[in-house]
Design a binder for these strands. Structure first.
Lengths: 115, 115
DNA sequence: GTGATGCGTAACTCATGTGTTACGCATTAG
DNA sequence: CTAATGCGTAACACATGAGTTACGCATCAC
């Protein structure tokens, strides 16, 4: 019943830059500098983003000389996945309803956002 | 490659009150008043949260007289689920690594948050 | 030792977000 | 018609967040 804590990471994932960092780290360990070089913002800004990700448990750091190697920790994502689970039924249901409509011969338009 | 857009809803889900609203709506349609009554904040505050959820596609509204019935739309959650997919391998890998450790006879502590 | 490099933190500014109260508008009750 | 109800919006206050530059502190190169 600790759903609130289980999805603390959502706050961290709300920022697009941080999601991109996560995406980069999914490819393997990177140093702070390597990561910062990929973004149009200043290095301290990335440093702060990395701190947020660290504090929410999404990444871990390994000091190596004067370099800091960041790595993705998938645990919070796994928990998010778990949090999502009760909702899976809902879209399954919806798909079922859709299939029913199709079975009835109705025209089933797939909803697609215009923008 | 439109991952950024696919997870727009993360911004909406970052707020705990909105997540709770989502949770309530998972149980079925509710009116704005019914929802607002459940929270310690003012009704206009909830109204604004509902607006955010509406704009991110997480809920839909149906006007019925002077009542507004809100319902959960699971589509953005489904997309979030999709976004999560590439990362599933990561925690699967980690579990594999863990099993390997166990097979080696090492002590494998399950990580558990103290709070 | 001395200077360059890698990276985090501090201090500050500006934009955004979340809460409040006051209000308006439509709908139902009498 | 008149009053009450349900709910959204406007206007404002305050907290939070993300960016910047300046700085400090290790570590590596020489």
């Amino acid at each position: 019943m600790c759903y609130a804590l289980a999805v603390e990471a959502l706050q961290a994932l709300a920022d697009p830059t941080r999601r991109e960092l996560i995406g980069l780290l999914a490819g393997g360990e990177r140093t702070a500098g390597e990561l910062a070089a990929r973004f149009p913002v200043s290095r301290p800004a990335i440093s702060r983003h990395l701190r947020v990700l660290r504090e929410s448990g999404l990444v871990s750091v390994r000091a190596d000389g004067r370099e800091r190697h960041y790595a993705l920790d998938p645990e919070p994502l796994r928990r998010l996945d778990e949090w999502l689970e009760p909702y899976r039924d809902l879209w399954a249901q919806r798909l079922d309803a859709l299939e029913t409509e199709i079975a009835r011969g109705r025209r089933a338009r797939t909803r697609r956002e215009p923008t």
